[in-house]
Nucleic acid binder design. Sequence first.
DNA 1: ATGAAAGCGCTAACAC
DNA 2: GTGTTAGCGCTTTCAT
Lengths: 343, 343
Amino acid sequence: MAPKAVTLIDVARAANVSRATAARALNGYGYVGGDAAERVLAAADRLGYRSNRVAQALRRGQLPLIGFMPGDIQNPFFARIAHDVDVDLRAFRHNLLIASSEEDPEQEVELLESLRSLNVRGFIVAPTSADNKEHLVRLVRDGTPLVLIDRALPQVACDSVTVDNEGGAREAVSYLIANGHRRIGLIQDDSRITTARGRLAGYIQALQSHGIEVDESLIIVSRSTVEYAIDATIRLFSRPSRPTAVFTVDSLMTQGALLGLRSMGLAVPHAVSLVGFDDFNLATFTDPQITVVAQPIAQIGPLAVKLLMQRINGSREPPHREQFPTRLVVRGSVSRPSRTPGR
Amino acid sequence: MAPKAVTLIDVARAANVSRATAARALNGYGYVGGDAAERVLAAADRLGYRSNRVAQALRRGQLPLIGFMPGDIQNPFFARIAHDVDVDLRAFRHNLLIASSEEDPEQEVELLESLRSLNVRGFIVAPTSADNKEHLVRLVRDGTPLVLIDRALPQVACDSVTVDNEGGAREAVSYLIANGHRRIGLIQDDSRITTARGRLAGYIQALQSHGIEVDESLIIVSRSTVEYAIDATIRLFSRPSRPTAVFTVDSLMTQGALLGLRSMGLAVPHAVSLVGFDDFNLATFTDPQITVVAQPIAQIGPLAVKLLMQRINGSREPPHREQFPTRLVVRGSVSRPSRTPGR
DNA sequence: ATGAAAGCGCTAACAC
DNA sequence: GTGTTAGCGCTTTCAT
């Protein structure tokens, strides 16, 4: 069935040269006679020769592949980065191997091993957990280029591209407080994820610096999908004394909160004020428009690629840990609480 | 720096057996003495041996990799499918190589070649163009498993998983007509994309079967991103005699239309009715909720994987061309036109 | 049950 | 300028 592929030998034979010469002509290195080169190229073309990158890789020790491991490719944040990385990598003639960890630490370890054994040249990873780092440490120790995105791990000595989660959350919650809210809910994802920790820390700081006590019953954990967040929102607002405002830690959860609140008949911002981390397409379409903490998402993928390629090309610089600032984009989803919070 | 990896030879030596025996023990085939096997496994574990999949691939002729080529990974439709494919492929211990064609036919050809030379075992692709099929025909001819998703190409003899674009569009537009609209705009993507053709055909059929003439000035082409669609919408509604309703061919464009209309002060559905192809998370959050043609998206990725793996496992069945029906989900974005169309 | 050895397709050091 | 050749790490046939 599958006709065996044309190999370098076939080309060499057809061009009446040795494999070495054929390879030189094809890859354009070393000395090759113009005449021979032409014959080789012609033969390759005629025969439909495609180099076998696996064989090349075995010989050279590496495959021009980059592993990208987001928490969830369906999250628009990661999809955008995947896109940007894919595009930028093309300039380096590298392909992208995407394997989502599904936010499962074990799966992250397994997939990483699996990709390592493919001799990929480097990784861009959004680590699922702050506690799960041995495999990454090992990776770095073995000299494999790695850049962490979205979530940095101080204990792993590698480049990272993140955002000021703490500051962003603090700004969002402070804004809510400045608008008179004191009972502010937090819908966040699993606290082993470092961004969740940072955003939680920002939330707590904002509260405490305004003398507001942190009420655990206002904090709820959800997986980062619209469906789970709807559910979490409903649970949060079904509790005896509900918050007057809520802060969500990513765009999928913001959308879930929106949907959840609506299903309970709670209008934004009249009944409940809302601020979300991470902007999204329809944030300005909803009525009201949603106030968000925007991240400079367009810069993340490109910088990650740049740092990674520098490592691949042998850079020995100390880790570059980029942390971009966030920006509070005030729209219309926050108003003063309509009445004093119940109890 | 990078300590050279532990190879099979190291393991064999440590276990005092030959490479052959070590390989047999590690891969669990052939006859291996229980004793030897144990020593090998222990040695492998102690040394931290990881098989070199590139070498295996060179030997076996294939890499357990599947190439996935969507038009745009940022489109939630493709992101969802990528996710489902990734997950299902894991059961077969295959990894996913995602390379977005960016809806560029040339790039599609190039990337496909590039992935082919990696000896990937099969492809799942959403072809960018109905006119650009030679490379796919060649792929199939060479016996490489291929399944087309979202967009089928009758001339390419391979499995495909699509949706009834024509029927879905016809139903949407008929619904608009049933609500009294006669000047119905169409915001679609490049007509070389087969889904665009199908949806356009459905649009035209619905119009004609109700005796409405097709007005080219109501059809506008946009790239499939929110930004481009906003722009297209504004252009469409800036024309002298604007439509009273509009049909958009994917969810990103639907969102763009929503944003564009709002920016022009045109309320949905009072000033303009709207139906979009492909459902999306916030379709029920917007006010009004958006009426859409829903696709059974959860079935696409899994079926594509199933078909592909069957081919990889040698199936010689004639091409399975699945075409799922769509479903019109009536929500609130359509009303009767407020006044007779101008002109 | 185990080992020896051929060879997957390619690159690059070395020889001519 | 071109050819020869030794592997890269692994699987697998063929002996034993």
